[in-house]
C-alpha cells in the first residue's frame, strides 16, 4: 500500500464529515428522520403518501445549494474529476439505485446513520459495499 499524500486532505475531509454528521443529527432532532439519501429519494420516486413528499424535496433543494456555499467560502471551485465515462456511467447510476433500493440504504443511511446507531445490520451493509467497491476499483484500475 502506498499513501497518496498529494491528494490527502485530512482536515477538509474531517470537517466535511463532521458537517455531514451534524446534518444527520439535526434531521433526527427536527423531523425524526434518518438521513439516508437513497431512502429520501425513493420516497420521491414512489411516494407512499402525497404528504410524505414535500419534506424530501425541501431537503434535496438544500443539497443542491450546499456546494455553492462552500465555493463562496473558499473562493475557488470544487474539484471534480470524473472516474468513468461512456456507457459505464449510466450503468453505474442504475446499479447504485438498484442496489440501494434492494439493500435499503447507502453510504449515508447505513454508513453515517446506521453505524452511529450501532446497527449490526448497517455495519454488515457497510462492510459488504466497501468490499465490493474496493474489489470493483481494483478490477477497473489494475486488472482490466
Amino acid at each position: 500500500m502506498v499513501i497518496d499524500f498529494v491528494n490527502f486532505t485530512p482536515f477538509a475531509s474531517l470537517i466535511g464529515g463532521v458537517m455531514i454528521g451534524l446534518a444527520a443529527l439535526l434531521l433526527m432532532l427536527s423531523h425524526g428522520r434518518v438521513m439516508g439519501i437513497s431512502g429520501i429519494l425513493g420516497g420521491i420516486v414512489q411516494p407512499s403518501d402525497k404528504s410524505d413528499v414535500p419534506w424530501r424535496l425541501l431537503f434535496v433543494v438544500g443539497m443542491l445549494i450546499g456546494p455553492f456555499a462552500v465555493i463562496q467560502l473558499l473562493g475557488r471551485p470544487i474539484e471534480i474529476v470524473p472516474n468513468t465515462s461512456g456507457v459505464l456511467l449510466p450503468v453505474a447510476g442504475f446499479v447504485v439505485g438498484l442496489g440501494t433500493a434492494i439493500g435499503s440504504g447507502c453510504t449515508s443511511g447505513h454508513g453515517i446513520c446506521g453505524l452511529a446507531r450501532l446497527s449490526m445490520r448497517s455495519a454488515v451493509a457497510v462492510g459488504t459495499f466497501m468490499l465490493t467497491a474496493v474489489t470493483t476499483v481494483y478490477i477497473v484500475r489494475h486488472v482490466v
Binding site: 472516474n83 446499479v95 439505485g97 442496489g99 434492494i102 449515508s108 451493509a125
Partner: peptide, 16 residues
C-alpha cells in the same frame, strides 16, 4: 443490495 451498490459506487465514484 449492498453488494450491488458497492459495484456501482466503485465504477462511478458517486453514491446517492
Amino acid at each position: 443490495g449492498a453488494g450491488l451498490f458497492g459495484i456501482g459506487w466503485g465504477i462511478g465514484g458517486l453514491c446517492p
